[in-house]
Simulated assay, not measured.
Amino acid sequence: MTGTPNDRAVGALMGAFIGEALGVGPHWYYDLKQLHRTYGNWIDDYTTPQPGRFHHGLEAGQNSQSGFILELMLRSLVERQGYDEADFCQRMDRELFPLLDGQPHSGPGHYTSESIRHAWKRRVAEKRPWYDIGGAADTTEAMERTLAIAVRYAAEPARMSQAIANNTALTQSSETMLSVGVGFGCILARLVEGNPLDESISQQPLQWLADDALAFAPVTTRKPAPDHPELPLRARRHIVRDALYVASDIAGMAADPDTRIEPAWKVSRLFGMPCAFYHQLPAAYYLAATFNDDFEQAVLHAINGGGQNQSRAMLVGALVGAQVGLDGIPQRFLGGLERSRALQELASALARQIPD
């Protein structure tokens, strides 16, 4: 681990923006031969989407919709001095939803994910309240915005877990997604605080769980369950424990000289190329542990694995950016990212809010 907590916080946020932008061109190529025919055998920089592909119309170095929403979250956190759910929801109502039409190929970045389309339909078309629009998508969209919450509350696990669970429930209401999102946030928070991504990374969060420091019930954006109200808490507690263990297990595997994935981008073939969190998170943890001091190799192996490589690279960028800090991110990635200076200033403003 390098740098100060402030530097690591900015590194995590900028790493996420960079990883997301790197995926704009080669996003969702499940046929790797087609990916190689289009972009060569190794993608090593920002690329422009091909005509007819996802995100067509963007240019190399631009962020798509996940980056747009992450920036909304960052601005809300900075301007409200912490997580203010009403403010975040108002920003989504005012700045994102008017740009959508409920179809996949719409909105910022020219593609809208399933969970956000579902939220738009219930919120705009059906005029439901925010607590009643979350859907069942098992993808990582909520993690891609709540990673900023994990950075902001890295030193405050109770506030972090409650805020992540609440924000996740806005668009993805399953108990599994709430727990897995909190688990990922715990791991990222430990990295921002200076812990290494190794087989011990889960120890402190597991102690938080044992001490009820992660007791994030009730989730205030959801109506209480009418029957057996204690069941959701048990479910969350069980699943978040598993989510924490998997990070340690995979980090330990990455350090084991007898267990190697060569080349490392093939981790996507091992854990799966699709969008669900159970494909994305194991691959992200493996790459972030394998290349814990090499941001460039981490995000490029994430991208070159194909499939849902944009989310994979965004999560990896945050995890490794938190380990190397802003100073450990190659200047060419920072320089090639559109609006990089403005995003760095925003990330720095958030980092200054983190308690010493």
Rank of each mutant, 00 (worst) to 15 (best):
A288D: 11
M314W: 04
L315P: 02
D294N: 15
V320F: 03
W265K: 05
K266G: 09
F291A: 07
L319P: 02
G317D: 06
F295L: 06
Q310R: 12
A318Q: 07
L270A: 10
I303L: 03
F295P: 14
D294L: 01
L315T: 03
L281V: 06
A264S: 10
Y278V: 12
G317I: 00
D258N: 09
A313M: 07
N304A: 13
L315E: 11
I261A: 00
F291L: 06
S268L: 03
Y278L: 06
Y285D: 02
H279D: 03
P263H: 07
A302H: 05
I303Q: 02
P263V: 12
G321N: 14
V267C: 11
L281M: 08
G305W: 04
V267A: 12
A302Y: 04
I303H: 01
Y286D: 08
D294P: 08
I303E: 04
D293K: 11
Q310K: 15
M314R: 13
V316F: 07
M314Y: 06
H279G: 06
R260D: 12
A302K: 04
N292D: 14
W265P: 01
N304W: 00
I261C: 00
H301L: 10
Q280P: 07
A284Y: 04
A283I: 02
N292M: 08
A284S: 14
V320Y: 08
V267T: 13
D294A: 10
D258Y: 13
P257K: 09
G317E: 09
E262L: 14
A276R: 14
Y285Q: 07
D258P: 09
F271M: 06
A284H: 03
L319M: 11
D293P: 14
H279Q: 12
F271S: 05
W265S: 07
N309E: 08
V320L: 05
F291W: 13
T259G: 00
A289R: 11
G317R: 12
P274I: 05
P282V: 01
A283C: 01
A264Y: 07
F295V: 10
T290S: 03
Y278S: 10
A318T: 11
N309R: 07
G307H: 04
L300Y: 14
L270I: 10
G317L: 15
H301E: 15
V316I: 11
